[in-house]
Design a protein around this nucleic acid. Structure first.
Length: 449
RNA sequence: UCCUGAGUAGCUCAGCUGGUUAGAGCAUCUGACUGUUAAUCAGAGGGUCGGGGGUUCAAGUCCCUCCUCAGGAGCCA
């Protein structure tokens, strides 16, 4: 029972059969037949059917019950009964009813609605059963991530959101005025700061919102999303990949263990998630290109505004959705692709000592068209090579002096990666669109609500 | 940014090669009903057909333009 005595929560009703309880919540749905009214009450922890039968109650109580509308907020009192016919498995016979707010014309009905309408009413859409389930899974996944790192000797570090310049130099950033110091930018990654902190604490992770002002408009993109970025001193690329596999396996298994009800409501095929066990698949970029050539997967390119298929796939080009999905179709668990051409990856990634054309980068692709859920690398720890890469990318060297200090003073091999929270929640819940897995999505043409 | 598609009742949609008063289901309101699960039955109200301009005797329908939205590319997690 709830330690807060004035009312009880629906999730605890199994302990209260035969007892009188007070429930508070919202009317999810109401049906009835003449002298009999069924109120489905939602309180955030579950749903409970409340029954009002006219001959057994006062005229006033029955009329109040009959007047209830979808999403009215109420308090009910009654004795709990186990009832197979009731959604949720329990039912209470109402002996007292208090109406907090009688809702008029609730916009989201139990019928079908379009995407645009629902997202415009996101603040109300969150009350719907699917969205409710997704938010619970999201919370569980965040907890799994924190538990995993906290339980494995990592320290949480909070990286700044306002930064003086681009950290990767590639993405477009949101810009804002910063007093007399010129422009500041909303961070697209906490990695550089995590690297600095790892030199103090050994193993750290930063977990916060990041921002990308790219004009991306797909069901996988948000302009504001949450990313967890571990960074580990003395980890090489293989340690990095092992850790990434451990983390993803832990998240999926934790969710399976703790969110059965939610996944069932979402009609997620959990047998597919059960297969997400180490070891995952691994493939070098070069082997992946060989596979694309063998299977005649072309490079899609725009030449003079026309779409052209380039065959065979040329070594050195980055993979797009077509290539990634083709590769992943053969797998039922994630696959890490590692050692990418240096030209397509960020300046801070370490050159492979065995092949100077590639860097020690790794991307983890999820099955079931989950796409890229992790991107990481071993970091360049040689100050000469790093300075050269900053030059080649035309990045302002002054802004990176503090970052170069990490290589001047006790430089060590180190690695890390970033995991996109929403991409993972989308994959695990099977949500059709990434906007469904964050409470208030920020997208290129939408900032309200 | 580019490409493609869409905008008709509160919601989801139909509306043919232009032709009388623009339709359906759901939702809402009124009434009936003791086990409903998207209840059912009977009745009622509800529209600047995204905005502007044009062609025509006549435009929801054809043309131009603008706006809004969708998801795909590029880029990425």
């Amino acid at each position: 029972m709830s330690p807060y005595k004035s009312f009880q929560y629906i999730e605890n009703l199994s302990e209260a059969v035969g007892k009188e309880v007070t429930l508070r919540g919202w009317v999810q749905n109401k049906t009835g037949k003449g002298k009999l009214q069924f109120i489905v009450l939602r309180d955030g922890t579950g749903i409970c059917q409340c029954v009002v039968f006219k001959p057994n109650t006062s005229e006033e109580l029955f009329n109040d019950a009959k007047s209830l509308t979808q999403e009215s907020s109420i308090e009910v009192k009654g004795v709990v009964r186990a009832e197979e016919r009731a959604p949720g498995g329990f039912e209470i016979d109402v002996t007292d009813l208090k109406i907090y707010c009688l809702t008029k014309d609730y916009p989201i009905t139990p019928k079908e609605h379009g995407d645009a309408f629902l997202i415009e009413h996101r603040h109300l859409w969150l009350r719907s059963s699917r969205q409710h389930a997704i938010m619970r899974v999201r919370a569980a996944i965040v907890k799994a991530i924190r538990d995993f790192f906290d339980g494995n000797g990592f320290k949480l570090m909070d990286s700044p959101i306002l930064t003086p310049s681009a950290c990767e130099g590639t993405s477009t950033l949101f810009e804002t005025k910063y007093f007399d110091l010129g422009n500041a930018y909303l961070s697209q990654s906490g990695q550089l700061y995590a690297e600095a902190t790892a030199m103090s604490l050994g193993k750290v992770y930063t977990f916060g919102p990041v921002f990308r002002a790219e004009h991306s408009k797909t069901r996988k993109h948000l302009t504001e999303f949450w990313m967890v970025e571990p960074e580990m001193a003395f980890f090489d690329i293989n340690d990095d990949m092992d850790l990434a596999e451990d983390l993803v396996e832990y998240i999926v298994q934790y969710t399976l263990k703790n969110c059965q009800q939610e996944l069932k409501l979402l009609e997620r095929d959990t047998t597919k998630l059960e297969k997400v066990r180490r070891p995952f698949h691994r493939m070098s970029y070069s082997d992946a290109v060989d596979w694309l050539v063998e299977n005649k997967i072309p490079l899609k390119k725009k030449i003079d505004g026309k779409d052209v298929d380039v065959l065979p796939f040329p070594w050195g080009e980055d993979f797009g959705t077509v290539q990634e999905e083709a590769i992943m179709e053969q797998f039922d668990k994630p696959c890490i692709i590692h050692r990418y051409p240096s030209e397509v990856k960020a300046f801070y990634m370490k050159r492979d000592p065995n092949d100077s054309r590639v860097v020690l980068a790794m991307d983890m692709l999820g099955p079931e068209k989950a796409g890229e859920i992790i991107g990481g690398s071993q970091r360049e720890d040689d100050i000469e090579l790093l300075t050269q890469r900053i030059h080649n990318e035309n990045l302002p060297l002054e802004d990176f002096q503090w970052y170069l200090d990490l290589r001047r003073f006790g430089s060590v091999p180190h690695s890390g990666f970033g995991l996109g929270l929403e991409r993972v929640v989308k994959w695990i819940t099977g949500a059709a669109h990434i906007r469904e897995v964050i409470p208030f999505p920020r997208m290129i043409y939408r900032i309200v609500p």
